[in-house]
Every structure is written in C-alpha cells, then in structure tokens.
Design a protein around this nucleic acid. Structure first.
Lengths: 219, 219
DNA sequence: CATGCTTGGATAGTGCCACTCTCCGATGAA
DNA sequence: TTCATCGGAGAGTGGCACTATCCAAGCATG
C-alpha cells in the first residue's frame, strides 16, 4: 500500500499523513525504492488511533507523540509501560494553578477526599500528577465562585469514578497481549471521556426536562 | 473600582479585561466621566466565571459570549433560559461526524442505549444535539479501532451519568434566584467536568496500582 | 528511449484563536 | 502646569494543526 491508498483507506489527507510521519506519530513505511514506501494494515490502524486521540480526544500532537513512544518502548516492563503511556497522556494543555488561599483550601479538600476514598495518598506523587492539580484547580474555581464543593459534594463523584475505573480496567485486561493492553488503555482512557461527558449532558437535559416540564418532553 | 483594581482583584491583566469587554463577555462599567468607568463586585464575580469557563472549561470565547447572553436574556422564562444557556454551552469545538458505516452502527447503538435508559428519545432533537453527535462520534471511533462498545458496555456509564445529573440538578435548585440558578447550571456543568475526568484518571491510577502491584503503592 | 504523471521528502505558508502591544486623546492628581 | 494614568481601538504576536508548493527520483506508456 502506498501513501495515496493509506490516505484513502484512513480518510486522512496525504499532506496530513506526511505531517504525522514527520512528527513521529506514525512509523515510516518499509522502503521499496529510493522514492517509494510500502504501508500496511498496522499503519491504517495506528493512523485511526492517532486521529481519534487528536480529533476526539483533543490530545495535542506533541503529547500524542510521547504517548505513542511510551506505548512502543519495549525496554519497560508491562505495567510500567502502562503507567508511562497514561501519564504522558495527562500532559495536555492545562491551566496553571495559582497559589490563592482558595487553592490551598481546595488542596486540603482534595486530600481529605482521597483519604475518604481510601486511595493511595502520596503527596509527592500527588503534586506531580496533572490530574491531581487539575482537580485542585477546579475545586478552587468552584469555591472562588461561591459554590459548595466540599468532601461531601465530591464523594459521590469519587465513588462513581472508582466504579468506572474498575470497568475500564476490566476492559483493558480483556486484551490478549501486553502491547494491545497498552494501546487499549490509551484509547479507552481518552475515548470514553467524550462518552462520559456527552452522557452527562444528555442526562442533564433529561433530568431537567423531567423536573421543569412535569416529565413531558419539551417542545 | 477602576480597571486597574478590577485587574488586581481578579488576577486578570488589564489588556485581557479590555479584550473581554470588547468581546462582550463582561458588561461595561458605569461611566464616571468621558475617560473613566467604575466597576463593582459583580464585575469581579463575572470575570471569575468567564475565566473559569475559558481556562478550566476550555470554552471558546465566542461560546462564552453566547452563554452569557442567554443567561442574561430576561425575555425568556426560567427553564427556557436554563436550556438556552446550557445548549449554547455545547457549541464547543467538536469533531465533524463522518458518514461511515461505523457511524451508522454507532448511531443505532446510541439510540438503543437511550431507549434502555428510558431517556426521552426524540430523533429531531437528538440530531441537533452536540452531545448526541459527540457520543455517536466517540462510539464510532471506538468501533473502528475494534473495541467493544455496545449497549452493554455503555449502560453503566449511562446509569452513572443519570445519577450525576440528579445530584447536579439538586445543587442547582439550591440556588435562591432564577438568575443564580442559570449561572450555577453553567458553572457546575462546565467546572465539574474537569473534576469528573480528574477523578477518573486518579481512580485509574489507583485501580491499576491495586491490580498490577499487588495493592502496594508504586515506587 | 522519451515523456509525463506520481511518489515521498522538505520548506514555507495558512487560518484560527486567545490574547497582548501600542498608540491616542482626555483626565485626574501633585 | 505637568505628567502619569485612564479607557478605547486596531494591529500585532505566538502557538498550533495542518496545508500548499516545490523538487528530484522513479514508474508506466508509447
């Protein structure tokens, strides 16, 4: 398969494929001659994954490259590779956390929450984790706006997250090979995010209709 | 309060505040003289909300303007305003849905899911809803990558979303005035998204550590 | 062999977006 | 009087994900 056919099969323009090749998101094809290369089904699959990460998952190109690199790093043992790939995934554009009093209070709230949930609580790891920092920033923003956002409010969310993690990990462990598991971890982590958020939005609409229009469908 | 003080109190540069004023994200201050304007606490609050939407919520500026406009539109009755504000909120950068066979299958899966959940199922509304389309696109992407993503897999997510919607709406209804409820709907919809996603990531890490390192904390 | 299209690779350019810089004339404070 | 400061407006910046253009080396056809 040549570049043109790869483009046709994946629905990605040749220009964009060339860009991804340059950026290291796609391994180069097998060189057939000085000016030609051969691509295979694994390129089609990879390309679909990359597209899904970038378009649906809004993962920056540079981050996608890190994730791909981590997922392919054979020098790491399996669960390290899993960790490397998913933590690379976390390096998205994120808002800076400022050192408000609100931010401090938010930090304490989050720490208390994690303790309540019984999750591993390691301050050093926590400070480095983008997810932890994002959580603190979001809680701080809510508090600054005057919305109640204590442990009691967050706990239901945390419990639901824990339940999701179990089903997600089950799905990942269904994959046969370590390499497939790593890819699944990346794909499922990112691609179930829009699923979850969309469902929440739809559920809001549903619940809102139920409450404000007496259970009837709105016009 | 002058522009400089508003900037200081909100932590937003004067240049950016001027930009927001120009873009209509912030109502103009009360004119004191030909070259001076007076801002109040409501401006500080609004500014914090706008910042939270844009920085944490990644809401595009143009969308934030629509949301603000809808939230302030006194000509609408309460629950219409709620609907207008939150549906404006949905107009984010979203990936285009292509008309694959995979997309069609995904559409049927989503329809079946919504029926299972017993949610109001209105094809016309569904086709227009960005959340619905995002959901279909995500399911289609998962299927194209060969991951199982049937009703059975989505149902737990849907049920969790329904439960979240109930607690979210409870929180919104705690607000005293209609205007505050609309603002709360916007703020909580957007700002709990990073909370939810962060908690899911942290839960993944926790569950992964539990499974792959025998319950010990990783190094 | 000649011709013209295609291929892969490299470079520079595009469009969008969220700011940010610079200038201006009017104003208020010392 | 003097001079920093204010609000307003337009142009400029930087980052990012592409995308258009060019080029030389094949390959396919007559």
């Amino acid at each position: 398969m040549r570049l043109a056919e790869l483009s046709e099969r994946s629905g990605v323009s040749t220009a964009t494929i060339k860009y991804y090749l340059r950026e290291g998101l796609l391994q180069p094809g097998r060189r057939i001659s000085a000016t030609q290369a051969e691509y295979g089904d694994e390129h089609v699959r990879r390309l679909r994954l990359v597209r899904a990460l970038i378009q649906l998952g809004k993962v920056p190109v540079a981050t996608a490259r890190e994730v791909i690199a981590a997922a392919e790093d054979d020098s790491l043992e399996h669960h390290r590779r899993l960790g490397a790939a998913t933590s690379a995934l976390a390096h998205r554009r994120e808002a800076a956390v400022d050192d408000d009093p609100a931010a401090e209070a938010a930090g304490r709230t989050v720490d208390a929450l994690l303790e309540h949930l019984g999750w591993r609580y390691d301050q050093e790891v926590a400070d480095l984790s983008p997810a932890y920092r994002t959580l603190v920033a979001a809680v701080a923003a809510l508090r600054r706006l005057g919305y109640p956002c204590g442990v009691a409010h967050l706990l239901p969310y945390g419990r639901l997250a824990a339940r999701l993690a179990v089903t997600d990990l089950d799905l990942i462990e269904e994959e046969p090979t370590p390499a497939a598991q790593v890819e699944a971890a990346v794909a499922l982590t990112v691609l179930y995010e829009p699923v979850l958020l969309s469902l929440r939005r739809l559920a809001h609409a549903e619940e809102s209709a139920r409450r404000f229009t007496g259970g009837e469908s709105p016009a």
